[in-house]
């Protein structure tokens, strides 16, 4: 990273930290919470979907498990942080169990396999935990959005920093090599299965952690909500719109997505889903590298001109 980049990051960070001190509007704060939530979940999806190139259509399962376990432990009197970590770890265990059979499948079959597993979980959870899960009244009396905002900010930063460190490490080189050309990577000593499992575990951990933050944030919901396929597909769309496989891509994608959705939903209600569908198709067809791809092209052209 160069000096300009570091300065931008420091300013952004200060602004994010100071944000709730200046903004008191609940709707704006809620919007900020959702932006951070989607930054985390999209970045966590990106570790497997982007770095490893394994399109996981069951990411909601990890978000949901994280939320479910966190909610249970927290309501049972556990510390919220401990509850979230346990929730995330349960998500990891689930990923490792799913990973063994799922990574026998490649490409489209992996995508369908993970989608099927998460749908099974959605139905099972819906049948097992059929009553609404609400924050107890005594906790509700002291409920405030500000700590929720900081919780999401913490999870988002942790996810981004981890993803950045991973991508620039030996692990990052290995897992992206597996994505680019699995046979060649293996012939050079990279164990594809081991690296995919690692990526899957890390992706599930941060998906689960985001779910835990959601459990801390949301006042009342049916547990089934957190297992819905929209969590997966929204994450994937954000990663692709911003730039799949990059660090900044899912972040930009999430900000763009949430703000645009807010804007569209206010004007067109449910019709905004169709707009997003079309947008996603356009991005995949014409901008396979997302917004980051456009930025790269501009940067290269500027560099060439300055030579």
């Amino acid at each position: 990273m160069n000096k300009i980049q570091i300065t931008i990051i420091v300013i952004l960070l200060a602004a994010l930290l100071a944000f709730p001190q200046f903004i008191t509007s609940e709707s704006v704060l809620n919007l900020a919470v959702y932006v951070l939530l989607y930054v985390s979940i999209a970045s966590s999806w990106n570790v497997l979907g982007g770095f490893a190139g394994q399109t996981n259509l069951g990411h909601a399962a990890f978000f949901g498990v994280g939320a479910l376990v966190t909610r249970m432990l927290w309501f049972a009197g556990w510390n919220i942080f401990a509850s979230m970590v346990i929730g995330a770890l349960v998500a990891v265990v689930l990923a490792l169990i799913i990973g063994v059979p799922a990574f026998r499948l490649r490409g489209v079959y992996f995508a369908i396999g993970t989608l099927a597993l998460s749908q099974i979980l959605l139905i099972t959870v819906g049948n097992t935990f059929s009553t609404i899960s609400s924050i107890p009244t005594e906790d509700l009396k002291v409920y405030s959005l500000v700590p929720r905002y900081y919780m999401f900010l913490g999870v988002a930063l942790l996810t981004i920093v981890t993803a950045y460190v991973l991508l620039n490490s030996r692990f990052g080189l290995g897992i992206t090599a597996v994505r680019e050309e699995e046979d060649a990577a293996e012939s050079l000593g990279v164990s594809a299965l081991k690296y995919k499992m690692l990526a899957f575990g890390i992706s599930a951990f941060f998906g689960g952690l985001t779910g835990g933050a959601f459990a801390f944030y949301h006042v009342g919901y049916y547990p089934q909500l957190t297992f819905g396929p929209e969590w997966t597909f929204d994450s994937m769309m954000m990663a692709y719109i911003g730039g799949v496989g990059t660090i900044v891509g899912p972040v930009i994608g999430a900000v763009f997505f949430v703000v645009l959705r807010e804007f569209l939903a206010l004007r067109f209600a449910e019709f905004h889903l169709i707009i997003f569908g079309v947008l996603f198709i356009l991005v995949v067809l014409f901008l396979p590298d997302g917004f980051m791809g456009i930025w790269e092209k501009i940067r290269k052209r500027l560099l060439r001109r300055s030579k």
């Binding site: 620039n168 490490s169 030996r170 080189l173 290995g174 090599a177 060649a184 990577a185 050079l188 000593g189 990279v190």
Partner: peptide
């Protein structure tokens, strides 16, 4: 680099 990092004298030092 993939060859160098993961090959016979595998290393962490990128």
């Amino acid at each position: 680099m993939v060859g160098r990092v993961f090959g016979r004298e595998s290393t962490q030092d990128l």
